[in-house]
């Protein structure tokens, strides 16, 4: 046995410790599962934490109906493989109003994701919800506790966070209040990729470059994952070009920018990621729509 753990081993052990604390102390935990690479790592860690049991909580996907098809495919398979219940919530009001990213702009994110998430947490009564956010993603995330306390209306109060010493987490709360738990807080994007490599974790193939049907929209490059639906919403059929593209993050296909790339292996993807001089979330339109404080503001309102 070599003395001392590697960096990834340490991160893994820490995340597992966090998950076990939640399961031991929370009444009804659940795991927010967004089908992206961070969710894939989080789910893998959950399998490890509770082995040989299945993770003793359900997966929750807050759906917008606008995700990539390949994401929906992996969603079902992953839950199955892990032996976990999969809960899917679609905000009924958004569904009824036909909220889409083109006509409704920021309301798309707010209604499907923020409101949808709050509805789902209330509906399933989770008092602790795991999320795959990392502190290196964004400047207000860098400020958030691992156990992030939320009011009964799901709001985050960044100026009044609980002290969080050592690895001692205070999971106590009053009725109605809840805790968001971020077991990947101390992981970086590179850590995530290296761990996916080391552990051979299955991720959505969209992370790897392949020829895909793409269209340009308001200066960005997107994938026409569901052409019929695009045409329906846009009122016209966008001009489709096949390009070799991949995605740095995954969300709603009309909101997730594709990058032209030929990186088709994990090493190549990581290489490309490391050589990129813009931040990861560039590809995702969501962060820009409220300027400087957008993420913080969303979190105050109940977003993850």
């Amino acid at each position: 046995m070599t003395p001392g753990l590697t960096h990834l081993q340490r991160l893994e052990a820490e995340s597992i410790h966090i998950m076990r604390e939640v399961v031991a102390e929370a009444e009804k935990p659940g795991m927010l599962y967004s089908i992206g690479k961070d969710s894939a790592v989080m789910l893998h860690l959950a399998k490890k934490a509770f082995f040989p049991s299945s993770p003793p909580f359900p997966l929750l996907h807050v759906d917008t109906t606008w995700k990539f098809r390949e994401m929906y495919d992996l969603r079902a398979k992953s839950a199955d493989d892990a032996g976990m219940e999969l809960l899917v919530h679609q905000n009924p009001e958004a569904l009824k109003a036909g909220i889409n990213p083109f006509d409704h702009g920021p309301a798309h994110t707010d209604m499907w994701k923020t409101q949808g998430l709050k509805q789902a947490l209330d509906k399933f009564g989770f008092d602790a919800a795991f999320g795959g956010a990392r502190r290196d993603e964004e400047k207000s995330r860098a400020k958030e506790r691992i156990f992030s306390f939320r009011s009964a209306s799901h709001g985050w109060d960044p100026k009044n966070q609980r002290p969080e010493l050592w690895n001692l987490y205070n999971t106590r709360k009053n009725k109605g209040e809840s805790i968001r738990v971020f077991p990947l807080s101390n992981w970086t994007e590179l850590d995530i990729w290296q761990y996916i490599m080391a552990e051979n974790i299955e991720i959505v193939p969209l992370y790897f470059a392949a020829p895909r049907p793409t269209y340009e929209y308001e200066g960005g490059l997107f994938m026409a994952d569901d052409i019929e639906r695009l045409e329906q919403v846009l009122g016209h059929r966008p001009r489709i070009t096949e390009r070799s593209v991949r995605f740095r993050t995954l969300g709603c296909f009309p909101l997730t920018g594709a990058v032209e790339s030929t990186a088709s292996t994990l090493s190549e993807v990581v290489q490309e990621m490391l050589l990129t001089t813009t931040s990861e979330r560039q590809g995702r339109v969501i962060d820009k729509d409220a300027g400087d404080a957008s993420m913080e503001q969303k979190k105050r309102e109940g977003y993850f």
Partner: peptide, 22 residues
């Protein structure tokens, strides 16, 4: 400003809570 990520911190020019950076 790279580290003081909260709106209140940027307004007041002070740090209120810990920022973890890598």
């Amino acid at each position: 400003l790279l580290v003081d990520g909260l709106a209140a911190e940027r307004e007041q020019g002070i740090t209120i809570d810990v920022a973890y950076r890598f």
